[in-house]
Design a protein around this nucleic acid. Sequence first.
DNA 1: CGCAGTTTTGATTCATCTCAATTTGTGTGG
DNA 2: CCACACAAATTGAGATGAATCAAAACTGCG
Lengths: 256, 256
Amino acid sequence: MTNIKLQPKPDAPTKSVPLTFDALKVACSQCNLRELCLPLGMTEDEMVRVDTLVGARRKIKRGHHLYRAGDPFEAIYAVKTGFFKTDVLIEDGRDQVTGFLMAGELLGLDGISSETHTCNAVALEDSEVCLIPYEELERLSSEVRTLQRHFHKVMSREIVREHGVMMLLGTMRAEERLAAFLLNLSQRFTARGYSPTEFHLRMTREEIGSYLGLKLETVSRAFSRFQEEGLINVQQKYVHILDYERLRHLLSRCPA
Amino acid sequence: MTNIKLQPKPDAPTKSVPLTFDALKVACSQCNLRELCLPLGMTEDEMVRVDTLVGARRKIKRGHHLYRAGDPFEAIYAVKTGFFKTDVLIEDGRDQVTGFLMAGELLGLDGISSETHTCNAVALEDSEVCLIPYEELERLSSEVRTLQRHFHKVMSREIVREHGVMMLLGTMRAEERLAAFLLNLSQRFTARGYSPTEFHLRMTREEIGSYLGLKLETVSRAFSRFQEEGLINVQQKYVHILDYERLRHLLSRCPA
DNA sequence: CGCAGTTTTGATTCATCTCAATTTGTGTGG
DNA sequence: CCACACAAATTGAGATGAATCAAAACTGCG
């Protein structure tokens, strides 16, 4: 059924037995990420059905692929722990990072349209995902209205997010892009109960640059500039935002 | 004027009478765009139900808004005739065109997530759209499995399309962007039975520039360059692609 | 038919890229 | 635990593509 082809793992449940100890252990109803992943206001009964939908987890080691462009699409994934990037490659070697994903966020939505994944998903640290077989998600969401609505919202939110990235890539200069990037990370860490002002980047300067449409040297220079100006304290992957407001102000100011 | 409140419509069938004259006039089952809009392989019965879903049309004059950022989200729209752009504005006046839409394409998906439209949709020529009340679409798609699946694919396709735009904005130089843009238009015109090599642009150089992350002068220069090189013939809004292959080749070549 | 909006073209400036050298950090194995 | 090799990050100098500023030509709309 869940034809795990990418990396056969010994510790994956072999069948979709609804409520073994293993399944219980991973139950959505017990998961502290459920406010991020799932719709509010489901009944007890609906919740139990969702628990059976999300039956398996999968561990991905840092640097390994969760899926690759071209793989057949069979499931979407919810990040349980860890950190991912998604990227698109073209023949001549250019690539574009299209997103960074953290706990509670969904991976693989791009694969629905053509029933094939169109981008690569790579773990930037040792990670774990919940596997949501797409066929079953479709079936269940046509029965559980709140789930259907939630799923539509998640897809729509991804579209809106990408509008934001287009705006960033199309109209902002280097320092604005980096500021927007840091503020976005800050917000998402906050939503997960981490510090809004101190965090570790999981990606390289090159990956940040690819996401922001900049070269890695430009990213590095922008970091240095922010540090000189006292906006942040940065040392390699460690970032401390010193002046959140002024960083935000960088974005609303007129370019010229 | 635009107080055509989305739901109540004088010309819509009051009950689920499948085939009044009016309903016939707008029926999806009779529409020559249905291969673009709708899933294949629906039964007669399902088709009739879709016909009742898409009950109303709305005409939008050139330059007018179909909806604006901030408007409450109630429906999505299928372009029946004409041409639209969608764009996002930020306070300081910068704006980003996020898409150009032609017959058979869907508008408004961004509004689902927050139940509020997040971008503006403007007609670039006198246009007409089919109005699809979202509540009803949700209800019907949970009953008609092929419709549900189709709708998911449409949303996913939009995500994939935006990945392409991110790649364009993030990694391509001006002439590559314009080439990609022209080839994309060409494909979409072809799919609608128009010439792949000759068409009229509906948007200004500035709008093209906004979409491609370039200034209008840069767009104009790129057009002129393509003309000098014998790739295209361009006169204001009229474009004739003379050497499709070489235009395509511009994209696969390595940047440096 | 005239005027406003659009497009083209030129000259100059500027932000980012490119190339290159150095420093810093990280993981591995002796 | 340290040393080494390799990856990542920083920094500088110079090249370049696109932005900006400016003016002229064109178009089509009212």
